[in-house]
Design a protein around this nucleic acid. Structure first.
Lengths: 182, 182
DNA sequence: TCCTACATGTAACGAGTTACATGATTTC
DNA sequence: GAAATCATGTAACTCGTTACATGTAGGA
């Protein structure tokens, strides 16, 4: 369906454009970081070290517009997406790239845990499970908090994250059982 | 349970040590790359550009030992893990770090697809589903191929990958339905 | 003869994290 | 008065991919 000309901007740029397009009010870099942490973080994180330089770049390119809006002595620049920004976002959305990259240290350790004894292997699995339960609960809290403020697609995607974690937790339980019954 | 002194080597180093520990025969860099691509790739990829330099580093540190074993004029260096290597692997295995990083461009596009029309949104979801089905089938083929040669833990972990992809595919189906019924 | 697999490596680049630096405002 | 949160930014560093370079061996 879509073309795949290589994109001119980093993925973080499109995350920024995406949130600015979704938001009714203009957002600061700090706001965008909050949104990232409260929604896409589990499948696409972004740090301040990426966001702030990217905002400058997007502004220079005319895809977003920043307006200084300090509160007293506290600096704040609020950004709005431009027509050109919407076009660029749309072009990116239409691309067919669906690459999924994972770097999962927990499961990697489990994979190589043959070198450990049964007890240690079990402990590893329980550790992994606990970590994923923690993520699950964080996600769930965010989900509950933002349920009313977001529209259908993000809602579906948050469910995706929740379900994914639920699957991992269930797998841990099965693996623990399998090792125990060994 | 475990300590968390920061590890001296990159994750790729431990992947190398892990495969050398698991393997009965010595392995070349090329062999290790094959193993990575056929098992851990979906939750921990590694490229030649990482593997070869890391092999040198591990050899200099005495964690592995390389023996030249050319076939005619074709170069080949085969590596074996040393006692020190086993110890280092074990220390890494005992660490509690379970960090999971994902960068999922497909779901990111779906998340921001509110800017698109219903038809385009549906097409995006179907595209994502197709990509994940492809991964699933690759994994399944590998799984079938290696089922006999690997031991319990890797077997369980391959099931993990398969089930994870199955979950994602099922989610795509539900999301497609939700958008269609809208 | 040509293609695929075997085999090893380096260099350039891009992506991303972390630590650091600085300071204001609000809440307890 | 202290701590948390708001707010912006840079620099150093690590990590990882991709492209390039080079060549052999074996099978169609």
């Amino acid at each position: 369906m879509a073309q795949n000309a290589k994109p001119k901007y980093s993925n973080v740029a499109y995350v920024i454009l995406g949130f600015l397009a979704k938001s009714e009010e203009p957002l600061s870099g700090y706001d965008i970081k909050q949104w990232v942490d409260n929604s896409v973080r589990f499948f696409f994180a972004a740090s301040f070290g990426q966001i702030y330089p990217e905002l400058k770049k997007l502004e220079n390119a005319g895809l977003i517009e920043g307006v200084a809006n300090a509160t007293g002595g506290r600096a704040r620049t609020e950004y709005t997406i431009s027509k050109a920004g919407h076009d660029e976002l749309r072009a990116w959305l239409m691309q067919s790239e669906t690459r999924l990259e994972m770097r999962d240290q927990g499961i990697l350790r489990v994979f190589f845990s043959g070198d450990l004894g049964k007890a240690e292997r079990l402990a590893k699995l329980k550790e992994l499970r606990a970590a994923r339960v923690e993520s699950y609960e964080t996600l769930q809290a965010v989900h509950a908090m933002t349920r009313e403020t977001i529209s259908q697609m993000p809602e579906l995607v948050l469910d995706y994250g929740l379900g994914l974690h639920q699957y991992v937790i269930d797998w841990c339980d099965r693996a623990i059982k399998a090792v125990e019954d060994q």
